[in-house]
Amino acid sequence: MIERELGKQLLGIDLNMGCPMPKIAGNGDGCALMQNSTLAGRIVEQTVRAVTVPVTVKFRKGWDEAHQNAAEFAKICEQNGAVALTIHGRTREQLYAGEADRACMAEVKRAVKIPVFANGDVHSGASALETLAETGCDGVMIGRAALGDPFLFAEIQAALAGQAYRKPSPEQRREIALRHASMALEQKGPHAMIELRKHLAFYARGERGASKLRVRINACKTLADLKEIWPEHGLGADDAP
């Protein structure tokens, strides 16, 4: 059904068996599936049978420190037809606290023959290179670090190519934030501004007067409001908190 509806827009299906949030894992989904590897394997198998596009799986280090089964879980996913895996180096219990375990990522990579992507604490070109070097993984997956920083992908590409990278100016950050807002509003309508507020606030990180700018963003109702409260040349001394 999904393939019929999306057609060529559907490039693949990624099964998220790593979500740690209580409303998901508490319902037996997400990372909770790591506690039921038989069911997880059947889900992968049935998904692979139902579609013609590649099926990948994302999962975590395990449920908690006493139940770490990432390598075994990776093998089950591979055996049931997954063509690639993403391993987040924290347990469900950790949520996003502490450091991602690169040794666990390396163990998963050694356990299977299909490509493995490392996820967790990749927030710069340097951290991407370190993660790849320590884990032997085939690539990295970026999650929360990209919030308000879509430039991160270019930074990592430059690092992989051994090239210098120049961070975006405040003007460039503003331009992309406004483009982000414009595209979301065009697609979802005026009500999208409420959802956008939390995302746009991330773009303010590092700006002079960022805390005041975030307060102003949360009061925006239209794209015109956003343009007005976010000066073209950044916040001046009079605007800084």
Rank of each mutant, 00 (worst) to 15 (best):
H233Y: 11
N69L: 03
A224M: 09
Q68R: 14
R205V: 06
A210L: 00
A133R: 12
Y96H: 13
V83W: 02
T38G: 02
H67Y: 12
L95F: 14
W230Y: 14
G148L: 13
M141Y: 04
D101A: 03
P20V: 06
M183Y: 08
V48K: 15
I142C: 02
P241V: 05
F117I: 01
F73L: 15
R49Q: 14
K227M: 15
K227V: 11
K167D: 02
L85N: 14
C104E: 06
H88G: 02
K227L: 02
V108F: 04
Q157K: 15
I156Q: 01
Q94E: 14
K8W: 09
R166V: 08
A145Q: 11
P168G: 07
G189V: 03
I114F: 02
I176Y: 08
L85C: 15
E65R: 14
T222R: 09
W63D: 10
G206Y: 02
T222A: 09
T135E: 01
I13A: 00
E93Y: 11
C137R: 12
D101P: 04
P22H: 12
M183G: 06
R174K: 05
A103W: 04
A82C: 07
A219N: 08
Y203S: 09
L178M: 00
H88N: 13
I43N: 00
K109V: 13
E65F: 04
V48E: 05
N27D: 11
N119C: 08
S124Q: 01
G7Y: 15
H88A: 07
A158C: 04
D121A: 08
Q157E: 05
A111T: 12
F117T: 00
A118S: 10
F151C: 03
G162I: 06
C220S: 04
L185G: 09
A111M: 13
G41N: 03
L185Q: 15
Q79Y: 08
V48S: 11
L223W: 09
D14H: 15
A70D: 05
V112S: 10
L185T: 06
A82R: 12
Q68S: 07
A106V: 00
V51G: 08
R179D: 11
D14F: 05
R174N: 10
V122I: 14
Y96L: 02
L235Y: 14
A25L: 04
R49I: 03
L147F: 14
V44H: 05
L226S: 07
R174S: 00
E3M: 05
Q187A: 13
I76K: 10
D149N: 15
D238R: 15
G206V: 05
G62C: 11
E232V: 12
R205L: 06
V122G: 03
S211R: 15
H233K: 15
S127V: 08
G89V: 00
A74E: 07
A177W: 07
M105V: 12
N69P: 05
T38N: 00
P231D: 09
V122A: 04
D138H: 14
I13S: 01
K198D: 05
L152F: 06
G189E: 03
S211H: 13
G18A: 05
G120Y: 08
S211I: 11
A103G: 02
L6Q: 09
E99A: 11
